[in-house]
């Protein structure tokens, strides 16, 4: 029933996104609807309301804010972020985020989008580490969420494809797998506790299964507008929230442990199209 109603939506939405960002070929909701058409996933179809609202995802406005910010000369060096290399060459944003985390020679580290953005803001624009532009990572008003949403939107519909060529990229993925299954804390939990079966609910929320690629791609599609938070949220925010809920201690933002988890979870969704920006419950 829900599925039938949803399948009628793409026609109505086909040109919905053009009002917002002209670099986006397709409204992210169409990517989601394509997946729903392909597989039977209680996770993907759990909120009819959210799918209907996705056409007017507030995150699309945040993407627009990010676009403005990206090309604006800023920081002590008064330059834009156009020379920042996200892995595809300076200023190339097309499909860059879908191919992260990745190893960067200039830092000798595997970096996720947030870490790379911090690096460029500090080295190119000259922002000090304690400047709010660098330090404030969360919330619709933060430079980070605006810029991350904008950069990620260039990977909407692009299959996840984090490179595994450098030994450190492989090592980070493997470390992430280990951490994903690592039970600890007074609730004996790991990521696996909630993400190893299809259709299971925690309270009323259907949980995504990490080994069901078509639903896992939506689960890892951050930035996403979290309806319950009324904010666009990042991958790093999701990790922080999961560890908070598992009653373990919070990881250091941008630490190798968090990037390792993102490497592993992105690898699991390899080949499936990213939904960017997404909208979640």
């Amino acid at each position: 029933m829900i599925r039938k109603a949803l399948l009628a939506l793409p026609v109505a939405l086909a040109f919905g996104v053009t009002a917002h960002a002209d670099h986006m070929q397709e409204n992210p909701v169409n990517i989601l609807l394509g997946l729903i058409q392909k597989v039977d996933s209680p996770y993907l179809t759990q909120s009819e309301q959210n799918i209907m609202m996705m056409e007017d995802n507030p995150a699309l406005w945040i993407v627009e804010d990010g676009k403005e910010l990206f090309y604006q000369p800023r920081g002590p060096n008064n330059v834009s972020l156009e020379s920042c290399d996200f892995g595809q060459g300076p200023g190339v944003l097309e499909a860059a985020y879908a191919k992260m985390p990745r190893y960067f020679e200039d830092t000798g580290r595997v970096m996720d989008l947030e870490a790379r953005l911090v690096h460029c803001m500090m080295t190119i624009q000259g922002f000090p580490a304690d400047d709010p532009a660098v330090r404030q990572r969360h919330g619709n008003e933060s430079d980070h969420m605006k810029l991350q949403s904008y950069i990620a939107s260039y990977s909407n519909g692009v299959p996840w494809d984090p490179p595994m060529d450098h030994p450190l990229e492989k090592a980070m993925r493997d470390a992430g797998e280990y951490i994903f299954f690592r039970r600890a804390g007074s609730l004996d939990m790991s990521c696996q506790t909630c993400h190893s079966a299809t259709g299971q609910r925690i309270r009323a929320s259907v949980l995504p299964n990490s080994s069901f690629q078509e639903e896992w791609t939506k689960a890892i599609s951050w930035p996403a507008f979290r309806v319950g938070h009324d904010h666009v949220r990042s991958s790093q925010h999701r990790i922080r929230g999961c560890y908070w809920q598992m009653r373990q201690a919070g990881p250091i933002p941008g630490s190798d442990g968090t990037i390792a988890l993102i490497s592993y979870w992105t690898d699991l969704a390899r080949g499936q199209p990213a939904i960017l920006p997404d909208m979640k419950r």
């Binding site: 470390a175 250091i252 630490s255 190798d256 968090t258």
Partner: peptide, 13 residues
């Protein structure tokens, strides 16, 4: 090795 990463990544708790 991964335990070392975990200790560092959660190191300021």
């Amino acid at each position: 090795q991964v335990e070392a990463v975990v200790r560092d990544s959660w190191g300021d708790a």
